[in-house]
Amino acid sequence: MALTITCPICGKRNGYEFRYGGEEKGPRPDEKDLTPESWCDYVHMNKCVAGVQQEWWFHRDGCGSWFTIFRDTTTNLEKETPEAKE
C-alpha cells in the first residue's frame, strides 16, 4: 500500500507525512463525570472497524493541523463520506 491522506490545508499528500491519532470518539468528557468504565471507554477502547471509519490525523511534516478523514481500513483508501463504498 502507499497511503495518501488529504489534509484540509495542504491537499493530498504522502501518508508518511502524517501521524494517526485514533478513532473519532467525540469531545473530551468532563473529568468529574468519569467512572473507571467510562474513562477507559474513552481513553483506551476502540471499535476496530473493518470498513470505513472516521479517524484523526495530524499533518506532522506539514501544516500541523489535526483533522478527521474517513478511511476504509480494509483497503487503506480515503472515502469522501462514511457511506461511500467501492
Binding site: 500541523g64 493541523s65 489535526w66
Partner: peptide, 11 residues
Amino acid sequence: TIEWIRYHTRY
C-alpha cells in the same frame, strides 16, 4: 509537544 497540545484542544 505541538501536536500534543493541539490534539488535546482539537474540539
